[in-house]
Computed example of a mutant assay.
Amino acid sequence: MKFLPFILFTVLTNAAAQLMLKQGMMNLGPLAVDGVHPILRVLQIVFSPWVFLGLCTFVISMASHLYVLSKVELSFAYPFLSLAYVAVAVFAYFVFREDLNAWRIAGIAFICVGTVLIAQGGAGHAQSSASENPVQTSELAR
């Protein structure tokens, strides 16, 4: 559980990136490409302020996730990323006035329960007993 803050940071930066990308795409409006070269349009999208900030936040999230993966088991860390959906759904409700109906709330509850069960399932440390006794090169030749 010592790496839980890093896992939650990954989740929150992932969710924040999604919200920034949504804001950026809403600011851009319809993506009509009439008379605009497609590569120029892609560059216009990527370098619009909110989209660019969202992409940068994704890079930070991925760097954090890579750090987490170096410290805990993948089967422990990865399910926590589902909490990003929870954060996005709740924040999208408040920020973008998106629908948060009973079915979505039920799904969010299941995600939260599942994540808690996974968190209770073990410490999640990547170090195993096999890695405590490294194999010597001479042993591989046998």
Rank of each mutant, 00 (worst) to 15 (best):
L12G: 01
V68I: 05
D34V: 10
L31D: 09
V72W: 05
F47P: 01
L19V: 09
D34C: 00
P30I: 13
Y67C: 01
V51Y: 11
F52C: 13
A77N: 06
F9P: 00
Y67M: 07
M25H: 11
V88E: 04
G29P: 03
S75C: 06
L28R: 04
L28Q: 08
V46I: 15
A87Y: 06
V33T: 14
L43K: 03
T10A: 11
A15E: 07
A17K: 05
L8E: 03
L8I: 15
I39G: 07
S75G: 11
M20C: 12
V33P: 00
L69I: 08
R41Q: 15
I7Y: 02
Y85M: 12
N27E: 14
L43A: 13
A89Y: 12
M26L: 14
M25A: 06
A89W: 13
F52A: 14
V72Q: 07
I60A: 13
F80S: 01
V88S: 02
L8H: 01
L55R: 02
S48P: 03
H37F: 14
F47T: 06
M62N: 12
F58C: 09
V68A: 01
S82R: 00
P49Y: 06
A87L: 08
V46F: 12
A32M: 10
F58N: 11
G29F: 10
A32H: 12
G35F: 09
I39W: 13
Q18P: 00
V46Y: 07
S64E: 05
F76T: 00
R41A: 15
F58K: 03
M20E: 10
H65C: 04
F9M: 13
V42C: 05
P30N: 13
V72D: 04
V42K: 01
V72H: 02
L81A: 02
K22S: 09
L8A: 04
A17S: 15
P49N: 04
L19H: 06
V59F: 10
I39D: 01
S64A: 14
M25G: 01
G35C: 02
N14H: 14
L74M: 13
G24Y: 08
I7P: 00
W50S: 10
M26S: 10
A15T: 06
F58R: 06
A87I: 13
K71D: 06
A77E: 08
A89H: 08
V51R: 04
C56E: 09
H37C: 07
A77D: 05
K22N: 10
G29N: 07
T10D: 04
L55V: 14
C56N: 08
H37Q: 14
